[in-house]
Nucleic acid binder design. Structure first.
Lengths: 216, 216
DNA sequence: AAAACTTGTTCTCTTTTTGTTCTTTAATTA
DNA sequence: TAATTAAAGAACAAAAAGAGAACAAGTTTT
């Protein structure tokens, strides 16, 4: 199984690279040529040496250093790996959403590590909830919600809706040909009725998170 | 923050460090060079001495002290060890918790990548909530909760409590000298009163997650 | 207090490991 | 068949690891 496809690498170089990537860890000593030989089923260091040289030329393995031995991957190699395996970057936290106020964006976008279960295949982002309009659905003030970026929704979905291009809010949506209704999950609040063209779906709720120790 | 990169250590230095980390708890007193030699199968203190010097330079072993002998690890060494374990694996998902039923453990422990905001420095694990006993706190059936492993709690904390060593439940806790009260967050349910010795705290709630797409 | 023992340190010397280079051999391709 | 490529193995130098002796400063035993 090749994890990365560097077409300019030979077959054996690929194999070596894959092995290094799989067994790489910050906390383990990089393997020596002999150990790599054993792992790859070679009997001579000399044979392996040529492949390593190729990987060094490709910038995927650190240039040898008389002082620091072992075959270690470069940052480049590690970077391309994480990009290939999972989106290791996480999900961007873009701001807070309060009923009736546009999304207040954060200046420096942070990325949060989100478990796979809380996101979808498609582009997602994170908002922090302000207010109690969804409290009956167990979405409290301060919760983070994972939103899948979309411009359409099904009836009953919880959506990020932009009203009249000015106000953003998190609500249940009910769309009919004549009107669009945004329904809070809070017995003290009333559903809001709009002309369909007034409401723009910006995403649907796919995940939610809460911290009981860090409040902000 | 600098990544814990031990790659500047030589093989043997790493071996010695590993040994010290693994057996650290077994030593009443920090081991002497001779004891370490014996343990590592060396015949000369002089050989070992060089490796220890390397570890001292790396800040992983305490600088020697004529008065206080033995090889002792620094705080840094202990810290980086636990950091290595937790960061790589994520948080283990150990099972489901329903009011009045022991935790049903999953057979193959999965690890979930949890955002830093939802966990603490200490050991955490994940449970899936069954039932509606905490619904007024916005904790719904099917939610995942992140629990910090602990055996004590403060009044008002939401805890995983083991009752009479048989039933596990997620509730608010109120401890007095005479009794321990477990309080559900559900208007239709009553607080439960116990003798203090009947209730065992297994952890406190530090984070919570919900998926709107994957139900199980 | 003196002798004997521990413990960490330093030194020299030897052995082993490791990366490199080279030649030879086997396998594959043109 | 000639040319190309990959592997094996030998040889080598530098680094790392090890053994053992010697020594100083402290402990313990006598």
């Amino acid at each position: 199984m090749t994890m990365n496809d560097y077409s300019f690498l030979t077959r054996k170089q690929q194999d070596v690279l894959d092995f290094l990537l799989e067994n790489q860890s910050h906390f383990v000593q990089p393997p020596t040529l002999d150990e790599l030989c054993l792992a790859m089923g070679l009997k001579s260091r000399g044979s392996l040496h040529k492949h390593i040289q190729g990987l060094i030329q490709a910038g995927l393995v650190e240039a040898p250093n008389r002082k620091q031995r072992g075959v270690r991957l470069t940052k480049l190699a590690l970077k391309t790996q994480s990009a290939a395996l999972i989106d290791d970057l996480g999900v961007p936290f873009v701001g807070a959403i309060a009923a009736g106020v546009p999304i207040e964006a954060v200046e420096n976008v942070e990325y949060m590590q989100v478990p796979a279960q809380l996101k979808t295949e498609n582009r997602c982002y994170i908002l922090q909830v302000r207010g109690d309009s969804m409290i009956d659905d167990g979405i409290l003030d301060g919760d983070w919600v994972v939103i899948e970026q979309r411009n359409h929704a099904n009836n009953g979905d919880i959506v990020v809706a932009l009203i009249d291009k000015t106000e953003a809010t998190l609500k249940h949506i009910l769309q009919t040909p004549r009107e669009t209704i945004l329904i809070p999950a809070n017995q003290t609040l009333q559903p809001m009725h709009f002309q369909p063209h007034q409401v723009e779906v910006q995403g649907i709720l796919v995940g939610q998170m809460r911290s009981y120790t860090k409040k902000l």
